[in-house]
Design a protein around this nucleic acid. Sequence first.
DNA 1: GATACTTCGTGTGATAAATACACTTTCAAA
DNA 2: TTTGAAAGTGTATTTATCACACGAAGTATC
Lengths: 222, 222
Amino acid sequence: MDVSVDCVVFGFDNDTLKVLLIEQKQPDTVHLKTQKAVPGDLVLDNESLDEAAKRILQELTSLKGIYLKQFHAFGDPNRVRGLKDQQWLRTFRVNPERRVLTIGYYSLVKLSEFKPKAASFAGKTYWVDVYNIPSLAFDHNEIVHKALLMLRHELMADHIGFELLPEKFTLSQLQKLYEIILDKKLDKRNFRKNILRTETVTALEEKQQGVLHKPAQLFTKK
Amino acid sequence: MDVSVDCVVFGFDNDTLKVLLIEQKQPDTVHLKTQKAVPGDLVLDNESLDEAAKRILQELTSLKGIYLKQFHAFGDPNRVRGLKDQQWLRTFRVNPERRVLTIGYYSLVKLSEFKPKAASFAGKTYWVDVYNIPSLAFDHNEIVHKALLMLRHELMADHIGFELLPEKFTLSQLQKLYEIILDKKLDKRNFRKNILRTETVTALEEKQQGVLHKPAQLFTKK
DNA sequence: GATACTTCGTGTGATAAATACACTTTCAAA
DNA sequence: TTTGAAAGTGTATTTATCACACGAAGTATC
């Protein structure tokens, strides 16, 4: 069996929660109708799963120290059913008939700092609203959906939200992030009480600049 | 790469939380020093991961409808380091050098109903106190440890404890189970308030029998 | 049938967390 | 100086959490 890692990369642009998709690579010769997919690759011979996930991320961007979490193994023998998927496998895989198990990871990147690598192995990349994902290759829609559920869970339990924000952020930005991930409105005062109680962030001696209203206190992760 | 499923089977005997271990099978010819391990097997060609886990359980017992949950993929390329492990692989695996990824599941069985199958593929089975596990084959100590952490988590979140108890149980039994899994004492009155509030169990019109004290109300899962 | 033994089953007050809710402050721009 | 826009803050209510002790109901024994 082949084993791959697929990485659901989340980013946040102050307005929507996005997922990074790549255009599947095309052969130079034939024209193949491409699909979008979550970045992923086969695990190499001497590589742990975590290392594979890290490598895949670094093939897309040069960021280091990105938040990465394994969340589920997808092993249905029929997870590759689509015609296009099989065509693609026949074109790009040494053993196209071989069953592929994939380990799902999700990662949180600061969109502000994200620069896709020029010569990215994967060709074009897209940031797509997580609540409006097109039909993807393989079982990637299911993978993204499950990643979102797990992210919600972990956001509540471990307050990792700031991983999606710039180093310095305001509590309003953080609140908006929570609201969008959890898909519900939160009360401002209660939200602040909660976040400050968890002590996952600390106030800086610094304020927002260049806004046309009262500038907010900046925070950073503790 | 080969893919296996390893199943951490939990059972509860009213006193201790136990894990099911098997004696690794031996070749008929040579004498190999055996080790204990968590039941597991390679995933078959046309089998999903969940199906593989189910099959492994059913090779040990004839119980159906057992609670099963995937909890983590263990993919370190060096997860099989021990000499004995490599010896064992050379004896029993078609491709002993091949790297093995394993998907960890845990399952909850009613010890009262558990009868190991006569001709179990795995030879002898043992129920071992989860807090006193001997040194196991491969990375199985790590797998068991992580399974316990995940079980604790899920016990708190989803109140699945009764899966380890007979159909009919008293709240005291349930409380003891919680205390042992979470490894801390709980207050009786508060515990009962909590459990009843979650509405995961319902009272039967029936009482405990054959005890030499006031018989307790029996409950069952809702 | 009285007594001893064992576990069952229950309530209250104190403290902490969750929720609902609205107005003043501070800055930039016009 | 006025306006617009988001920042920042407090209180009362409800709900959970926690600590804590005793009478009730059954069995066994004498």
